[in-house]
Simulated assay, not measured.
Amino acid sequence: MSVRRLAPREVQPESFAFTAENLAWAEKTIAKFPPGRQASAVIPLLMRAQEQAGGWLSEPAMRLVGDMLGMAPIRVYEVATFYTQFQLQPVGKRAHIQVCGTTPCMLRGAGDLMKVCKSRIHEEPFHLSASGDLSWEEVECAGTCVNAPMIQVWKDVYEDLTPEDLEKILDAFERGEHPVPGPQNGRHTSAPVTGLRVLTAPELFDGSTVGQGAGLALAREAIAAKANGDAAPSAAPPAAAAAAPPAPPKSDPAPAAPPPAKAVEAAGEADKEKPKKPVAPPPGGKAADPKAE
């Protein structure tokens, strides 16, 4: 991980302005929040600005967003420098690779993925490849620990990676393609890689067991009887219902509580010997004699 600072001044553009389409989208997004809460739109507006600028967020873009939301520039900087989804300097034109380096991914081979990035893109993070198409960085927990190791590229995640998988993904991005995101080993979302082992009966999912319960059958009988003016059916379950299982045998009685420790007994006896605290008399009168009653 690295300290997150804004790009140097010589890299920053002189100005930033939303396109007409993005400006209309931004105004509609701001309108979703009640008066006085427009600053809640800062993250979506910064994301849209980053996407428009080719994948990174410049200082003029942050200032524009702050002006639109009535926020001081420093407040916008705080948000942009906190979240690693915001890139603070130019990134690869085709892809910026975020390699998760948290413990689950490291245990599953994230270090090997970083070696691929170093050999294919640049030895150091936040540097462009020779063609300017790719860049990379290490991030902390991108949230798919169960499918570790993984990378994130823009809004997509690529999971269950091997170094060979990452090489193919980088090749695709360099060709201008968009690789299919998700697990790269055939796993379905986060399902066991070995396939399902339980709850595999088809009738659990085809709807054939829906509405077959005894309770639903009784309810249908009651509705039909009411419609016909007949007496309500007995609440007893239908004959097809299984008989209630016998009551389980009573377990042995609980063992007697162990005798109190001697120290506890001594403390109890000492409490008994302590004089009772005097009771304060009521206002304007004498204390009541407890023996008078």
Rank of each mutant, 00 (worst) to 15 (best):
S129M: 01
P34S: 02
A244F: 14
A236F: 05
P192Q: 05
C100Q: 12
V79S: 03
V279P: 00
R37S: 03
K262W: 00
Q50D: 08
R108H: 12
P44L: 03
L113S: 03
E273A: 15
G195R: 06
L166D: 01
A61C: 00
K28T: 15
G54I: 01
A263D: 11
V76L: 01
K262M: 09
F18S: 04
A257K: 14
P249I: 10
M68V: 05
S58K: 02
K286V: 08
T162R: 06
L6S: 02
I97N: 09
I30K: 11
V65K: 05
E140K: 13
E14T: 07
D252V: 14
C117V: 01
D206Y: 03
R120K: 10
A20W: 07
C100N: 02
P183Q: 03
P278Y: 07
V279S: 04
G176A: 05
A110D: 02
K272A: 10
K226V: 04
R5M: 13
R5N: 14
A247I: 14
K274S: 02
E177T: 02
L46S: 13
E27M: 09
K118H: 00
G211N: 07
E293V: 13
P73M: 01
F86I: 08
K291Q: 12
A288R: 07
L113Q: 03
G182F: 02
I43S: 11
R48F: 04
A266T: 11
Q98K: 13
A287D: 05
G268W: 09
A130E: 15
K155M: 03
L64A: 09
S251H: 07
P181L: 01
N147S: 10
I30D: 09
E51Y: 11
P183K: 07
L113C: 00
P34R: 06
M106S: 10
A41Y: 10
S2K: 14
P163G: 13
A235R: 09
G132Y: 12
T162C: 04
A288K: 12
T189H: 10
L69C: 03
A201K: 12
D156M: 06
P245A: 15
P73V: 06
A254Y: 10
V153K: 03
V279H: 01
T102Y: 00
V157W: 10
L45K: 12
D206K: 02
P181Y: 04
L161A: 01
M1N: 15
T81D: 01
D271C: 09
M1P: 14
G215P: 00
A270S: 06
